[in-house]
Amino acid sequence: MKPYQKVPIEECGEPMIAILPDLFAVVSPHPYQVLGAPYGEQSPYFLRQRVVTQLLAAQEALQQDYPGWRLQIFDAYRPVAVQQFMVDQTLADLARSQGLTVAALTPDQQQTLREQVYTFWAPPSLDPTMPPPHSTGAALDLTLVDGTGQVVDMGSPIDECSPRSYPDYFQISDRPLERQYHHHRQLLARVMIAAGFQRHPQEWWHFSWGDQLWAWLSQQSGTPVTSAHYGRYELIHGN
């Protein structure tokens, strides 16, 4: 169990709405769908209604200082089946990077690699008291695009399972390019946090509003949040 999963959930029943591509930049085709993730008829480009409202506020703040820039959505809603698929995919990729296969891993190797996976991926739990953040419709992975439509370089790709993904990895670097990476990460965090989001401690790209992780991080910063607003989406709608 991760610390944030102890936060109680008081589901508010708020609906999911589409992330409109004319308002935000989106990665298309969706990277997990390309891999074969089992979304079925569900779309990854959905979030809870209040989360989309907060996201618009973040983009407006960004454009005040950087006209023409936009938030680019990499991933948002993620059914638990997709979470399981991506955890398995990431484990296989890590094993392959070491010249191994999942089937041939020793118990110690399996444990080591799974610990690495779960540093960046939430467990694909079906327990209603500890849903994966993305399965609530409250969490999203995103980056920035500039006024020309080019993706802003953050120094590491989304979903990289390495310390380079930690938000402050480049903070103490004296290399100008790496200092720029840190500046871009801080810019993303500044506009998102100003809009009420919280950032994942190990992922520069992951932000949420209203889920257990958001509530727990809010508590750590001294904000009197007692519960999460959103639980697992499928439980409400039977999807």
Rank of each mutant, 00 (worst) to 15 (best):
T53I: 07
Q54W: 00
Q54L: 06
Q54D: 07
L55Q: 03
L56I: 13
L56N: 04
A57S: 11
A57N: 09
A57Q: 12
A58V: 04
A58Y: 01
Q59Y: 02
E60N: 10
A61Q: 14
L62E: 04
Q63K: 12
Q63T: 11
Q64T: 15
D65N: 14
D65P: 03
Y66W: 13
P67N: 14
P67W: 12
G68P: 05
W69K: 05
L71Q: 05
L71G: 04
Q72G: 13
Q72A: 15
Q72M: 15
I73G: 01
D75N: 14
D75H: 13
D75G: 12
D75A: 15
A76E: 03
A76R: 01
R78D: 10
R78P: 05
R78G: 09
R78H: 11
P79K: 06
P79S: 10
P79I: 08
V80C: 06
A81C: 09
V82K: 01
V82H: 02
V82I: 08
Q83N: 13
Q83R: 03
Q84M: 09
Q84V: 05
Q84P: 00
Q84C: 05
Q84S: 12
F85H: 10
F85G: 06
M86K: 08
M86T: 13
M86W: 04
M86Q: 12
V87I: 11
D88H: 03
D88R: 06
Q89Y: 13
Q89E: 15
T90K: 11
L91C: 08
A92I: 07
A92K: 07
A92P: 01
D93K: 11
D93I: 07
D93Y: 02
D93T: 13
D93L: 10
D93V: 09
L94H: 01
A95H: 04
R96C: 11
R96A: 15
S97R: 11
S97M: 10
Q98G: 09
Q98P: 00
Q98K: 12
G99K: 02
T101D: 07
T101A: 04
V102W: 00
V102T: 08
A103W: 00
A104K: 03
A104S: 11
